[in-house]
């Protein structure tokens, strides 16, 4: 196991009965890399991500996350990763502070740690005055940024982001990506899915899944060159149109 590798998979497969949701995918994600994980609806992204988060046992193949085996060490994996999705992120009926306290508690952080980290995040997000407001009273953009900070609260090695910016306004979307850049700059590995093709460009490397397989994996620049186009959108369309599978 190379110390520079955050995630490694080899022939990782997930079958549901006769249906192969994820078909022998192999890739490495380097430490501190921003790795874009793209694919059409139903291509198998979510299933693959679940296996890597230790939520679902693979049917075949191997995978390690933060150096831990996804079959046997999923509890250790969970401690080393952060997760944020568009659907579930924060408790609407808890305050900003209470949410942080709760997540810090889940990961077994000391009171001292929680206190300092909370202060740090509130400073960074300029949310000091809103610390005691219920999350539901915050605008969507703030919620997403807060959700990201909360997912990063326990300083995970790897953070999984499942369509983190859906529906967010363009300014907040960029502020969000700046936060991602900063997290990566401090050595956190970022594993992100998105439907916005311009966001794929922000990634160091991008993989595109079609029908359960990884059909392309490279830097955005190299992908565009290989597919002879100047937009990621077009690369994606060329690949995704090959899909024969049409169900979620």
């Amino acid at each position: 196991m190379n110390n520079d590798t955050a995630i490694r998979t080899h022939d990782l497969t997930k079958r549901f009965g006769g249906f192969i949701a994820v078909n022998k995918i192999s890739f490495d994600v380097k430490k501190g890399e921003i790795f874009g994980f793209l694919g059409a609806n139903g291509a198998g992204k979510t299933t693959a991500m679940r296996m890597l988060c230790g939520l679902s046992i693979p049917s075949d193949g191997m995978a390690t996350v933060a150096g831990f085996d996804v079959y046997k060490e999923n509890e250790k994996i969970k401690k080393s990763i952060g997760y944020m999705s568009q659907q579930f992120s924060l408790y609407d009926d808890l305050t900003v502070k209470e949410n942080m306290r709760f997540y810090g508690g889940i990961y077994g952080k000391s009171n001292q740690f929680i206190k300092e980290k909370t202060k740090l995040i509130l400073d960074q997000l300029q949310l000091k005055n809103e610390a005691n407001l219920l999350v539901k009273s915050l605008p969507l953009g703030w919620k997403q940024k807060l959700a990201f900070s909360v997912a990063m609260f326990h300083e995970p090695e790897i953070i999984f982001l499942d369509e983190p910016t859906g529906g967010v306004d363009p300014v907040t979307r960029r502020e969000f990506w700046t936060m991602i850049y900063k997290a990566a700059a401090t050595g956190t590995t970022v594993f992100v899915t998105t439907h916005y093709m311009d966001e794929a460009e922000y990634c160091d490397r991008v993989s595109i899944m079609v029908d359960g397989r990884i059909e392309a994996l490279d830097t955005p620049a190299a992908l565009k060159k290989n597919y002879n186009t100047n937009s990621m959108d077009d690369v994606f369309l060329q690949l995704a149109r090959k899909a024969t599978r049409k169900s979620d």
Partner: peptide
């Protein structure tokens, strides 16, 4: 087209 992939959106 929210939540729909790029191909279907097009």
């Amino acid at each position: 087209t929210t939540g729909v992939d790029a191909v279907s959106r097009k």
